[in-house]
Design a protein around this nucleic acid. Structure first.
Lengths: 189, 189
DNA sequence: CCTAGCATGTAACCAGTTACATGATTCA
DNA sequence: TGAATCATGTAACTGGTTACATGCTAGG
């Protein structure tokens, strides 16, 4: 259900097209909610027939016409109800990399270490991105839109990402160390 | 694709039924991969016709017959290839609670604080579970099965969970503090 | 010349959820 | 008496991915 909520959330900032919505998602909610254009377009269509959004076609030359969506009163209602709704359970997660590790007892130490080091590199890069690009993007968005309170939420989400990557890195580093040490022990014996 | 890998992973420890597989998942991979029986049964069937597993029917009285699945050589092959496969990208995640917060600028401070405190309670409970039940369960499994190297992986996954919950709690606590403080400032003024 | 960006969508497929169906046994 | 555990599944639906289709403009 949450793609609908994501679209309502962005449209609550102002009217825009499906294409615009995709770009906003790629730049901001990407790491906690994402979608392809091929899912966004039909979802907007269904949301319109459900009365949550309405569209206006802007004719263009040399490009397909723009279809600009706005949130309706009913849409704002659905959005606010979602924002207020209680969290009674932790959402189930799918983490293929953890799953892989869980069953990696069958791998030799070298392959296992290579796996973990690959992940280390990816997470280091992601931490960097949160600290540089994402921070700059949020600051710029706050200046451009003047949405300071929303900006506080965006910043909180970014800080979650930073904390998450730091935890992930610390854990990976400990795991690598542990396995490397147990390997030395075997070679030395 | 990863439900198939999960099932192969558990079957690599020994033959079991779909029902057993579900219980193992609920007790161990639950927080990084989960599935319903209604998805497990047909998946096993397709894996059998793909030659990754094979089944043997054990007749029972008063209950449906047991269908015990074992991993085949081809299945073990697929499992090992997956374990060895490189991680080239961070897997995309869906975090409805973060998404909700991202758009929560429209909520008043009290509702926002209530939201965050609900989450705090859930994550505190989850941390406790990882530290008590999960730790005990893993220890017991290692003793029962003698799989010490696999046990190291299970334990690493558990420690990831502990670290994740600690990070989540620290972040929630900071967020609550920040919002509560900004609220005091407004009241005091 | 080719790639990226702008801008819309459809169709086929795969993964996952919810509801339904059956039926015995054990425990509170 | 009713819920939980054992044990299998099917059917209908929803959510999400991948591939296909079109076509112009700007920049390296």
């Amino acid at each position: 259900m949450s793609l609908r909520h994501t679209l309502l959330g962005f449209l609550s900032y102002g009217p825009m097209t499906g294409y615009d919505l995709k770009k906003f998602m790629d730049n901001s909610t990407q790491h906690f909610w994402h979608a392809q254009l091929s899912q966004i377009y039909p979802t907007l269509k269904r949301m319109e027939s459900d009365g949550l959004v309405e569209s206006m076609v802007l004719p263009q030359e040399g490009k397909p016409n723009k279809k600009v969506y706005s949130i309706t009163v009913a849409g704002r209602d659905v959005l606010m109800n979602w924002l207020r709704s209680a969290t009674t359970e932790l959402p189930p997660a799918k983490e293929p990399n953890l799953l892989r590790l869980f069953f990696s007892g069958a791998l030799d130490d070298d392959t296992l270490l290579a796996q973990l080091r690959q992940q280390l590199a990816l997470h280091r890069a992601q931490l960097q991105r949160y600290e540089d690009e994402t921070a700059a993007y949020i600051e710029q968005q706050i200046i451009e839109t003047g949405r300071e309170r929303d900006g506080m939420m965006w910043e909180l989400a970014r800080e979650f990402g930073v904390g998450y990557e730091r935890h992930y890195l610390a854990w990976l580093e400990r795991a690598v160390e542990m396995i490397a040490r147990s390997q030395d022990g075997q070679k030395g014996a």
